[in-house]
Amino acid sequence: MSFGFFNYWIFIILLMIGLYTVMSRSNLVKKMIGLSLFQISVFLFYISMGKIDGGTAPIVVETGADGMAPVYSNPLPHVLILTAIVVGIATTALGLSLVVRIRETFGTIDEDEILEMEDKD
């Protein structure tokens, strides 16, 4: 019974870890890593929703494994997540490049140290 939600629970735990990393770590690269974890967990959530028991990958085949008409898993979440992954890496790269610039300007990538510097000015 409860196994029916197992994937969702994994998603929640991963999401919590990601969120906690983003909020608690002051290192900016670590924050980006946390965001990536967060992202991955959402991917898992979508793909889990698209799964149908006994289904197969959504590529047309003549007959199913047992000679019956094949059951396809839902292709729509796959499409959404596929593009989201690539867009995710592009935006992550943008974030990382900002981190690089911050490091060059402030000499550190630690959020707390940057805030201290701001206060001194």
Partner: peptide, 15 residues
């Protein structure tokens, strides 16, 4: 294992 072969492909290459 969740039948999302395209996504798995992308995730392996990108992630």
């Amino acid at each position: 294992s969740l039948d999302a072969v395209d996504v798995a492909f992308t995730e392996a290459a990108v992630g």
